[in-house]
Amino acid sequence: MTYNTISYIIYTIITIYITVVVGYKCYKSGYYYVLSIFIDEEISQAINKILLLGYYLTNIGYVITIISTWKTINSFNEMINELSLRIASIVFILAAMHYMNMIVLAFWRKTSISKK
């Protein structure tokens, strides 16, 4: 087991955990937004589930794809450095996407209310 292999395992576990938890929380509270746009309960539940699945697929896919670009790690110190940097970048991307989503949803809701 090289340092690289160990850090891949730690990295995958932590980032996937973060992605899944964030996604589930957004799914829970995003439902009411979707409901206020589509009114019908059944359809908004279906849309919400499909959106959650798409979020998981693209984000976990990205997280896993990035593993192939790591450079070689030679010491424990380097491993900690690299791990924190990589995990931080994933968390930052998630945060940026989250704020973007909130802006889009707020905007969408405003237009759909003003239409009625």
């Binding site: 087991m1 090289t2 690289n4 292999t5 891949y8 798409g54 979020y55 697929l57 693209t58 976990i60 896919g61 990205y62 997280v63 896993i64 794809t65 990035i66 593993i67 192939s68 790591w70």
Partner: peptide, 22 residues
């Protein structure tokens, strides 16, 4: 090496997952 195996697999599975999401 096992490391190469993990890297290649991650690229393939991750890329496929993104494609599925799209």
């Amino acid at each position: 090496t096992t490391q190469k195996l993990i890297e290649t697999l991650s690229y393939k599975v991750g890329g496929f997952s993104i494609y599925l999401g799209a």
